[in-house]
Design a protein around this nucleic acid. Structure first.
Length: 524
RNA sequence: GGCCCCUUCGUCUAGUGGUCUAGGACUCCGGCCUUUCACGCCGGCAACACGGGUUCGAACCCCGUAGGGGUCACCA
């Protein structure tokens, strides 16, 4: 048997990380068994602009490296992969169900059904439709229609016995047929309900394993009913737990951003991304730019490998110690049996830790290539970039080391890209390191003279000169070096001061020291 | 409320009757390093939801209880 799995996104305009994890499990399972991973588009809601809303989702999958074997853009033997284009298949399935007596025309009105529901609620019992508007003959149809009623097509579910199926995550699952509602599969306007469409598509696409989030578990019995009634082959099921909110077991939703921002860790992650956007002069819609949506991670400069690895371990583990797996290892080791049964909450800090790990492993050239677009967007580097800029950026990336946790962090080092005159001094740092210490200005003047005499203005030489200056004056290095950092970068924090001096070069350093001295003099 | 599912450190998890005074990772808290910040290094806090069984022996098996969650649509 060929293993075929599918993920069926609705064109909503963004890719939810919970969805990504479900897709990832589908992808890995198919690849592990040498099968295919299919992308099917659930675009039955015609009111949306599919093309526009689908693009970011497909883009997200590509960015993450979750390449689909069949689906939009690549097509495949079972095309079309858009549900909106598959109506004839659904119609013939409904006709078949009607003909075999597994479905019926129902003429109940929405408000009558709502009243039933309310009554059942009051009486604290299941709400099972009593079929009082079920048409059993053409005469019934005529009578109901003459009353102004319209027909939906409902499943005629069994009222006794059990539906039993095996789930790869949950084991044997059993539900009483009597508790299953006669669900609608076709609306009066002829459009089809998800349950019918998914069953028909899974059959036609030859899907062998349905791997989906556990909120679909209660839907499974009615789908199995249709599968059996239509003479289809039952796929194997695996209902994986959903991704939960940070610090809770409630399903993560893209609509509860405000609540999540009250979580310290989530806010920290969010703010990190937002601050990068601000430095780029962008102000993205917070509903579309937040850590529940994959776009956030791409735009802020995360590594797809970090997100994927993190998501894999959210609800799955290889053993008691393995944390990092590359794509090949994921494919090799993935198994549904090791999926954890309980929902796992999204932990922004742990994702950060994975990002840090992968960033540290990243090849220097790639790191520079990732940072460059941010500098271009911020107008620190021209587009196309000048040919010597890579070396310059590289020297900064090397000096910054792991301070660049995500690519957008390169913007923290904007002082290397602005003109001396436009350098902004951080007030707090300037006060603490230059204004407040009594000897800071005098030391800075003295060191400036020393630095101006250096011909070979590199890390080594500047270090030797500064250290001999420190010795001459009998001071501690911290007394001058912090003032020096603020003078040349405007900031109180940054990487090694000698690296900084060397990258800026002698003239820019002297220039900036002069500016800082002048600024201090006018302030005092 | 009915039905279904879940329950090991704050979080992600390992654990399938003795090797568990419960292991790893992230976070957190100390300390070291130091030129600020970050990194790194060393150390520490921290969990089997509860109650009954079964058994020589239970985090692991059974039954209850509690808590949490999902779902009950002419959404997917």
């Amino acid at each position: 048997m060929t293993v075929r799995t599918r993920f069926a996104p609705s064109p909503t305009g963004f890719l939810h990380i919970g969805g990504v994890r479900t897709a990832l499990f589908n992808y890995l399972f198919a690849k592990k068994h040498g099968g295919q991973f299919v992308l099917r588009i659930d675009d039955t809601d015609a009111s949306r602009n599919v093309v526009e809303a689908l693009a970011p989702i497909l883009h997200g999958f590509k960015w993450l490296g979750l390449n689909w074997d069949e689906g939009p853009e690549v097509d495949g033997p079972y095309a079309p992969y858009y549900q909106s284009q598959r109506n004839p298949k659904y119609q013939s399935a409904v006709d078949q169900l009607l003909a075999s007596g597994h479905a019926y025309k129902d003429y109940a009105k929405a408000e009558e059904l709502a009243a039933d529901r309310e009554l059942a609620g009051k009486e604290k019992r299941d709400n099972i439709y009593d079929r009082r508007f079920m048409a059993v003959s053409d005469a019934d149809c005529d009578r109901f229609e003459s009353e102004g009623r319209t027909a939906t097509i409902r499943l005629k579910m069994p009222r006794e016995g059990k539906c039993v199926f095996v789930d790869h995550v949950r084991g044997s699952v059993s539900v009483d047929w009597a508790r299953e509602q006669d669900s609608v599969i076709q609306r009066p306007d002829g459009s089809f309900i998800y349950h019918l469409a998914t069953v028909v598509d899974d059959e036609h696409f030859q899907i062998s394993h349905v791997i989906r989030a556990e909120e679909h578990l209660p839907n499974t019995a009615r789908q199995i009913f249709m599968i059996d009634a239509l003479g289809y082959k039952r796929p194997e099921y695996a209902h994986i737990p959903f991704v939960a909110e940070p610090g809770s077991k409630v399903k993560l939703s893209k609509r509860k951003l405000e609540k999540y921002l009250k979580n310290r860790d989530f806010k920290k992650l969010n703010d990190h991304g937002v601050s990068i956007m601000e430095k780029l002069g962008e102000s993205p819609d917070s509903q579309l730019f937040n850590p529940v949506i994959t776009d956030f991670f791409e735009r802020a400069g995360f590594l797809p490998d970090a997100l994927v690895n993190y998501l894999l371990l959210l609800g799955w583990s290889l053993d008691d110690k393995t944390e990092f797996l590359n794509r090949d290892e994921m494919v090799e080791h993935f198994s549904l049996e090791r999926v954890v049964k309980a929902a796992a909450s999204f932990d922004p800090l742990k994702l950060d830790a994975f990002q840090q790990h992968y960033m540290n492993e990243l090849d220097l050239k790639k790191k520079v290539a990732m940072c460059l677009p941010f500098l271009q967007k911020a107008n620190y580097v021209a587009t196309p970039p000048p040919c010597d800029i890579s070396d310059y950026v590289q020297s900064i990336v090397i000096a910054a080391g792991d301070r660049i946790q995500i690519a957008g962090d390169i913007l923290d080092f904007d002082d290397f890209f602005v003109d001396d005159q436009k350098l902004i001094f951080d007030e707090k740092a300037f006060g603490k390191r230059i204004l407040k210490p009594e000897d800071a200005l005098e030391l800075l003047r003295g060191l400036r003279e020393k630095l101006s005499g250096i011909e070979q203005f590199d890390i080594k030489t500047t270090e030797v000169v500064v250290k001999s200056f420190v010795e001459e004056r009998g001071i501690k290095i911290g007394q001058i070096i912090n003032a020096l950092r603020v003078a040349v970068t405007g900031k109180g924090v940054g990487f090694g001061t000698f690296d900084t001096l060397a990258i800026l070069g002698r003239d820019r350093c002297l220039n900036r020291i002069d500016l800082a001295i002048a600024r201090a003099e006018s302030a005092g």
